[in-house]
């Protein structure tokens, strides 16, 4: 894509044209002009807070996103959704099926849903998910919802992307709490017990509350509320919406949002730098002399120093 072409798409994005939103997302996702595009998009985004929905597979994340979308649409908000599903580690292919639960909003021009494969990225999201959210915002979708892949214990990269982390669990999965208590448990701003029409919902809520009691003064500054919902029966959705609003008001009023954004910036900068270093390493490795490799068999740490020196020697990392 030529610079003129890209500028035209960016102009169309700011006019809130859906095709431009879609095309620029693909460009960024495919890493074709990503830095240039994001440089422009960033100038027109960053105000909206991102609600991230995460939790184990099958707990109802997509259905909750659908229900929340309905809730925000009733308030007249325009909703941008990114739904991430895993890519195959073998072929890179993916089945992206989150839209199925969100069909009701497909032809609503004030809702934009984009599915992403993780494309080898770990942590529950894709490499460029943060960028895609900002493109949606610049394209006029002010209410941003992110659905991660189904996660287990330690996929906490959602912290880098979401201002409100909603961890979704189900009744009767007490062991599930055990599994997450060290990982996702610590990053939740709000807990949701979904499928609360099933037996054991109150007990699950109590289990979570008890664990939060154990936190004492440590951990997040604000104790996460525990909300009972049934996405399919539309129960507890306004309560969840209010919990999100309260947490976001707290972020803004306490100044916490600034701290979060700085942490996010640091992590995003690191990720981008990491990619550059990797590319530089991949380019350098084939050029290193054979005797370095032989020496490296005895001393990989020494080899690291030499390769690092060759990678950076007198050259700019850009």
């Amino acid at each position: 894509m030529s610079r003129d072409e890209m500028n035209e798409w960016l102009e169309r994005l700011l006019r809130h044209e859906r095709r431009a939103v879609a095309k620029l997302i693909s460009r960024v996702e495919d890493d074709r002009g990503r830095a240039e595009i994001m440089h422009s998009v960033r100038a027109h985004s960053g105000k909206s807070l991102v609600v991230g929905i995460t939790g184990p597979p099958g707990v109802g994340k997509s259905s909750l996103v659908e229900a929340l979308t309905r809730y925000y649409r009733e308030n007249g908000e325009r909703v941008g959704i990114v739904a991430v599903d895993p890519s195959s580690p073998y072929t890179g292919g993916a089945i992206l099926g989150d839209r199925i639960r969100m069909q009701a909003h497909t032809t609503d021009r004030d809702v934009f849903i984009r599915s992403m494969g993780t494309r080898g990225h770990l942590g529950g999201v894709a490499r460029s998910t943060a960028d895609v959210l900002r493109i949606l915002e610049a394209g006029g979708y002010g209410r941003l919802l992110l659905e991660t892949v189904g996660v287990g214990q330690s996929e906490i990269e959602i912290m880098r992307l979401a201002d409100t982390v909603v961890v979704v669990l189900n009744p009767g999965t007490g062991d599930g709490i055990q599994a997450i208590k060290a990982g996702i448990m610590e990053v939740a701003d709000i807990f949701v017990v979904n499928k609360s029409d099933m037996p054991g919902a109150e007990r699950m809520k109590n289990d979570i509350e008890m664990m939060l009691d154990l936190n004492g003064g440590a951990g997040p500054l604000r104790r996460p509320p525990v909300v009972l919902t049934s996405a399919l029966q539309a129960l507890g959705i306004p309560e969840l919406g209010e919990a999100i609003a309260e947490q976001q008001a707290f972020l803004r009023e306490s100044g916490q949002i600034k701290i979060r954004r700085q942490v996010q910036l640091q992590r995003e900068t690191w990720h981008y730098l990491e990619e550059k270093v990797r590319a530089l390493f991949d380019g350098t490795w084939p050029q290193i002399p054979q005797d370095w490799l032989e020496a490296g068999e005895r001393d990989p740490f020494g080899l690291v120093e030499k390769v690092w020196a060759k990678m950076t020697g007198g050259r700019d990392v850009s």
Binding site: T91, G93, A94, I95, L96, G97, I100, Q103, S115
Partner: peptide
């Protein structure tokens, strides 16, 4: 089959 061929497949339902 398309997934196994390395494509990203969005299934509409």
């Amino acid at each position: 089959a398309l997934r196994d061929a390395g494509m990203e497949v969005i299934y509409s339902g």
